[in-house]
Design a protein around this nucleic acid. Structure first.
Lengths: 185, 185
DNA sequence: TGAGATTAGTTTCATATGAAACCAATTCCA
DNA sequence: TGGAATTGGTTTCATATGAAACTAATCTCA
């Protein structure tokens, strides 16, 4: 049995996007309380700040930074990071990864050698210069993150971590918006 | 006195992006635990699902949907919603709003009349057709939102609402990443 | 084997985006 | 007044993006 059923939960403090005026009245949605919108604004705000800083201070785009973060975390002797692995780890598509990598090779930040065992693949590593930038960015990035969450209690931080996990899972499983009550195609 | 000083808080469950290997060791950042990255992935996942659904079912882009949501919420007799007001309310820039509006006028979803009191401005309203779509989208959007948060407890939902608020505030106030220890320009 | 299916990665093309320049109407003051 | 500064909104231009087509290497299995 579902708790609290289908009932409206718009108690005024809830951020659920519905406003009074339920079934029968004119349907209303408060954009400023609508989860997809709120999350998008939050993520974009952060992303913009980060992108501008990386561009200005380190000459990197966000996709490039993500490639760098992946290589910084995993490359080196014994590892064999491919473009595909980067794409999987960064949630970027392979086109974006391919472009980021080729720019970084141009810039001398990344080295690429064909995998002798499978000549479709290339193994990617940070160059000396690349790792130099990586080691400058990481503290800045962690510091920024720390300042972002500085006002949150330990409990809230834990909650945040869990919420992001849960929602990310659900977002991949939840069917997209469709007309309520409409039958399938 | 700062609490807990500069000490690492990476207890293994925290999502703070740092990994063991602190000062002195090689600096490491786990992208998959890094807040800006996590939020970006979450927001993009939701945004993609929503965008695809709006496009396919209603022929709208996300910026267009946001314009529609704003007009649906505020337009009508007595109100005077301008492009500027839409931009402010949707956190989009004026270029994006201008383009969304002109497409929607083309499509017959939005009407625009010059404000007689200030002929730089135009007052925007949903047409009959526009409101028709709005009234079909809103229930679908609210239903999607409800399904997204279906697994969360009431406490978690409240926490989510507050966290998004707090973080959005902080994100606009927090200085962007800069090299730790570096002096200003 | 070797022809079709698969996988890694790149290129193409059409669209989306945003910063900056722009136009027009309005406001500000000397 | 009347010109400079401001505001509302659009256009331009250069870049970013992603879906789909493409190339090349590898795998599959009849």
């Amino acid at each position: 049995m579902q708790d609290s059923g289908e009932g409206m939960e718009t108690d005024g403090t809830s951020w659920i996007g519905a406003a009074p005026g339920g079934p029968g009245g004119r349907p209303v949605l408060r954009l400023e309380a609508f989860l997809p919108y709120r999350l998008s604004v939050l993520a974009n705000t952060i992303s913009h700040a980060v992108a501008e800083a990386y561009r200005e201070r380190f000459g990197l785009t966000v996709p490039e930074w993500r490639v760098m973060a992946t290589l910084g975390e995993f490359d080196g002797p014994g590892a064999a990071v491919t473009a595909n692995a980067v794409a999987a780890h960064t949630a970027m598509d392979k086109v974006q990864v391919s472009r980021a990598i080729s720019r970084m090779i141009q810039a001398g930040l990344v080295a690429r050698v064909t995998d002798p065992g499978d000549r479709r693949r290339s193994i990617l590593t940070l160059t000396e210069a690349g790792r130099g930038i990586y080691e400058r960015i990481v503290p800045a990035a962690l510091d920024y993150e720390r300042r972002l969450v500085a006002g949150l209690s330990e409990t809230e931080r834990a909650c945040l971590a869990r919420l992001i996990d849960t929602l990310t899972d659900r977002a991949t499983q939840t069917a997209p918006p469709r007309e309520v009550g409409a039958e399938g195609p």
